[in-house]
Amino acid sequence: MAEAIRRQAPLSRWVIYAVLVAFAAFYLVPLIVTVLNSVRTEQDIGSTSVVGWPRELALSNFGKAWGTYCIAQRCEGISPFMWNSILMVVPATIISTLIGALNGYSIALWRFRGDNWVFGIITLGVFLPEQMKLVPWTLVLRDLGLSNTITALVFIHVIQGISFTTLFCRNYYVAIPPDLLKAAKIDGAGYFRIFWRIVLPLSPPILIVTVIWQFTHIWNEFLYGVTFTTGAQQPVTAALIALSVSVAEAPQYGVQSAAVLIAALPTLLVYLFGGKYFLRGLTAGAVK
């Protein structure tokens, strides 16, 4: 195929490149605009538009966004919310990934009665809309005394996440040859030893996919954040909406751009360094 295309007229090659580059520009515009605005002054943006080259570098925007800007009567910038997100995303990612690996192993390789049913229901959890779970979660969190805490969000994301992590790991583990398991059983290895010595050492690719998926997913999650936490307990996505509401009266696009960039940075970095695994997770979790 490609051979045939290569022999085409140079003109059509140029057209192809032009289209591809134009789309690249289209995708990059919001990012570039945000980056540029984050170092522009308010007067600069106000007098022209959000699209423009900085007249002078206003690096102080980042400092304000991080530490002093007022969001909903609190003037600590987005840093406390970033910490909230980190405190939420790190334990939730690790715990849900470990449980998913164990679940996937049980379902895929340690066949038991009803395993197909269990797996079917867990996959249902992948596409069940979050709106169906809001009311029950409210009650569960109240009964556990976790209302409006980061712990509550960790708890929710672990349990929600099990569906995804189990699905990912199970689909990876079913490809492990059954002979390997038979050999291990004859060698005298049990459930835990097979998991620890044989399955887990084979798992790094899928664990990376799962961790990246869970990390970006939980970091970017918004609905649970705004529903179950308020004020100082909110993760950064929820706080950004609060920020955009609080600046609606006196827009501060420069500071806001800096805040948005900081909030997007962790997932962007994960994407840049783990793009291959990120795509694999997207494809596997596509039903979300």
Binding site: P177, D179, A183, I186, G188, A189
Partner: peptide, 15 residues
Amino acid sequence: KDRDIAMVFQSYALY
């Protein structure tokens, strides 16, 4: 594991 057997597999099943 307690049957006093050993097995060689078609796919070798090497870890």
